[in-house]
């Protein structure tokens, strides 16, 4: 039986040759993402903007323009209406009316009555109201969570490797998080709590990739003392490439299944994750690795300890490896 090999044996791609170009593009992308988030803004869901959200499903395709007129004429403030997952389902978002709980209830009832009057087939599947105070807290908690996750993981890597690796991981993470946010600014997909969970998961998995590469870099640094850093990084990246491709593919398979079959609520989450896997894989190769060169990681970074198992490995040269 012949097994599938996505990456041929002894692949030797010169990733590092492109490091200046790649990092240049990445930096531009990061800046563009921040600019987009600043200019266009994120389409915050009720979790973060506060307000009222209703998910409505119709038997046939939703007529959004007509709905917008209906809802606006119900006098509930200016509504933001968009399809949600599929064409039959929409989310209606409204600002929270001033006043107490009774005022919110009146708005909900008014909108429901108005929509049902024109569309007897409408079913209100979900209603969420979040007060400004709570949404403010959720924004803070979400931002802190992402920040702490990035710092926490970088510190862990610093302890397990060297500080340069921690910095490299942090930059790779910054890249992944920025691009994910940029993606949400471009597409204006709703950004809610689930997306924060997605970003945190991306942080976790992007690191997964970075660590696999770093682990191999550390191993090779101990093995090949005389190899140039760029060559050694290329070697490490190529050695781990099959794993990177296969794992990314299994993740993509799982996530694509979620996008296709996971239903409307999980759509944004799954799309964010799918993007994150791609971005995370890219950043491990083109950001996390080259940064090690610039931060001066070299064969001296992991001096063998007297009792360390790895340290006892006899230094080999590149030619020995290829010959063996």
């Amino acid at each position: 039986m012949r097994l599938l090999k996505l990456v041929p044996d002894n692949t030797n791609i010169g990733f590092l040759r492109w490091r200046n170009v790649a990092v240049g593009i990445s930096v531009l992308m990061i800046i563009a993402s921040f600019a987009l988030v600043a200019i266009r803004g994120l389409n915050f869901g009720v979790d973060f903007s506060g307000g009222l959200m209703m998910e409505v499903r119709f038997e046939q395709e939703a007529r959004i323009e007509e709905l917008r007129r209906t809802v606006n004429s119900a006098g509930a403030g200016s509504a933001s209406i968009q399809t949600f997952g599929d064409a039959n389902t929409v989310s209606i978002r409204l600002p929270l009316p001033p006043g107490d709980e009774a005022a919110v209830q009146r708005v909900v009832t008014r909108v429901q009555d108005a929509v049902r009057a024109g569309n007897p087939d409408a079913s209100f599947r979900r209603t969420e109201t979040v007060s400004g105070k709570v949404s403010g807290e959720l924004v803070t908690a979400g931002a802190l969570a992402i920040l702490f996750a990035m710092i926490g993981i970088s510190v862990y890597i610093w302890f397990r490797f060297e500080w340069q690796f921690g910095v490299g991981a942090l930059f790779a993470l910054l890249h992944d998080v920025a691009l994910t946010l940029g993606f949400f600014a471009v597409t204006q997909y709703e950004f809610d709590l689930n997306i924060v969970a997605a970003v945190l998961t991306i942080v976790g998995y992007s690191l997964n990739d970075t660590i696999v590469v770093y682990d191999r870099v550390r191993e090779n640094l101990r093995k090949y003392r005389k190899m140039g850093m760029a060559e050694l990084l290329d070697l490490s990246l190529n050695e781990t490439l099959p794993r990177t491709i296969v794992t990314s593919l299994t993740m993509i398979i799982a996530l694509a299944t979620l996008v296709a079959f996971g239903g409307s609520v999980l759509f944004g989450f799954s799309v964010a994750m799918l993007l994150g896997i791609g971005v995370g894989t890219y950043s491990s190769i083109f950001i996390a690795a080259p940064i090690l060169i610039w931060l001066g990681v070299g064969p001296g970074s992991f001096l063998p300890t007297e009792s360390g198992g790895e340290g006892r490995l006899k230094p080999k040269t590149r030619s020995e490896r290829i010959g063996g």
Binding site: A145, F148, I153, N194, V196, A197, L200, G204, L207, N208
Partner: peptide, 30 residues
């Protein structure tokens, strides 16, 4: 095994932070 350990610890760190800061559904995810 060593790589697997390191890689999974970072995921657990992310999940733990999600659990600490998340609310409701996000906690369930974590």
């Amino acid at each position: 095994s060593r790589t697997i350990f390191d890689a999974n610890v970072t995921n657990v760190i992310a999940a733990a932070i999600m659990f600490a800061f998340g609310s409701g559904p996000v906690k369930g995810f974590a």
